[in-house]
Amino acid sequence: MQREDIHFSSDPQGMAWHALIEARLMPLARAAGCNDMEVFGLQLALVEAVNNIVEHAYRLTPGQPISVGCECTPAALRFELRDEGMPMPLPLPSGEPAPAEADGGRGWQIIRAGFPDIHYERVDGVNRLTLIRPLPTAV
């Protein structure tokens, strides 16, 4: 099993964490056999999940802790996002497509397109969002 963890602070005006996701986590997806389009979809879904933490859990407050861990097993890619912000509303959004010309509301659609299996729990004030992408079974 391969594992990689990244840690950074919430920064509503910054993009440095995008480079961390791309440089440290996406190589695991490529090593697991994902093609460029699949890697783009996973990266995009992770960015949307982190955006939600920055915008909703931390309400755009900079400097708050966020971590993203990635485990790659033969069966799946498993990402776990942790933050100490406000709890997520339950149930989690279904990711239904937004109306065609709506200004927003597409984040969860993108997250669920990248990760069909999603779990959330809050433990001791820490939000844990687990995003799982099954991998094709090796023959």
Binding site: L44, E48, E101, D103, R106, G107, I110
Partner: peptide, 15 residues
């Protein structure tokens, strides 16, 4: 690279 915030920029332009 573009996320849903980027899409919203283009939709707002269309509107």
């Amino acid at each position: 690279f573009m996320d849903s915030s980027g899409l919203a920029v283009v939709v707002a332009g269309l509107q």
